Computed example of a mutant assay.
Amino acid sequence: MKKPLIIAGVLLFSFSVISCDKLEKVKAKLSQNDTSQVNPFSVNSGDTNRDIISFNNKVVKMDDEQSDFIKDFQSILIQMEDYVKNADANPQFSGVVPIFTPSVMMYTRQELKAPDVLGKDFQALVDKMKDTMIQLESLKKELDTYKQAEDWKDDKGKKVAEINEKAIKLIKKNRTAANDLFIRLSPKANKAEIEVLKDHPLKTQIIQSREIMELAQKIIDDSYDVTDMNAYQNKFSQQYLQMEKLYNRNISEKIPSSEKQKESSYQAFNNSVNDFLGKMRIVQRSLNEGNQELNRNLDNLEREAGYVLDRYNTFVD
């Protein structure tokens, strides 16, 4: 089964449980109808719906960036702990020292202000997400220095355990803040999106495509939270049938001639969904056979879900 993302075997909660659900933070379509009274470059443009959707989009990008950083840091901590244990037990151990990938924190470092219409509580949650992430980045640099100096030869891994403990607390604070933020923001963003789309010529295609994209993300989220394999297998089968139904509905919906420039991106999105269905069939076979390829096949499915999300964003942009 797909392994929950944990820190060095110590973190007791699944990352997917505390991570803000991607279903709650999809990228919404910005209004294309500007007026002389609206300043689209301002946090408070004068268009409430535009301001909420714009803020939502920026937070989504920041959260995706932070989630990727956390997963990478968790993986490094696990690898580092294993390496130090093996090196301490066997002085002749010749395993590969964990490689630290460069941190890319573009959105976290950018100024991000909540529009006045949302209030100060939203800004406080954004600031907490950014502050905890900066502290986590500092911990990663500290761990890198520890690795480069080979200090585990002196402290037998004590520093790794200390960094791990600090990281657990910071990650929990970061994910809790993100979850709280999207619980509050999602209803407002969804309402704003509906208002923006009410007269849009591609309203049906966008709403239907969003439903597909959300289901793909939920399928992945569910793979991280399995306690009963039989129940999960049945659920996965039902999700496949649901996805296939939504896909067939989408491909039957044509792009109007007035929006022909969107035809290729709509087709690309539908193609990515078809590929996702193919990967689902592979996972289904692994579940039915109980073979050892299940984890790898779920990884491939998760990667395909990322393509579905990317193609959706390209379509609605």
Rank of each mutant, 00 (worst) to 15 (best):
L118D: 04
A161I: 11
T145H: 14
E162T: 04
I207A: 05
M133F: 06
K169N: 01
T132F: 01
S186F: 09
I183V: 15
I134H: 10
K158I: 09
N190P: 00
I183W: 10
N190Q: 07
T145D: 13
D121V: 13
F122W: 10
K156Q: 07
L139N: 07
K130V: 10
E162P: 08
I194L: 14
Q205L: 15
A178I: 11
Q208E: 13
L139Q: 03
E142F: 09
F182K: 02
H200A: 08
K169R: 02
K130I: 06
D199A: 13
F122H: 13
V126T: 02
D180Q: 07
Q208Y: 14
D131C: 04
T145E: 08
I168V: 15
Q135W: 04
D127H: 05
N164W: 01
E211G: 12
L125A: 08
L181A: 02
K169P: 00
K172R: 08
F122L: 09
G119H: 00
I163N: 00
R210P: 07
M213N: 06
K153E: 01
I194S: 14
T176D: 11
I168D: 09
D131E: 07
I134N: 12
T204Y: 15
D121N: 15
E214F: 05
L170W: 04
L118A: 03
R175Y: 12
V126R: 00
Q205M: 15
R175F: 13
K147G: 02
D199C: 05
A177H: 14
Y146A: 00
T176Q: 08
N179H: 07
G157I: 08
D131M: 12
E150N: 04
A192S: 15
Q208F: 11
N164H: 02
D127W: 02
D116Q: 07
A178G: 13
K166I: 05
T176G: 06
S186L: 02
K156M: 04
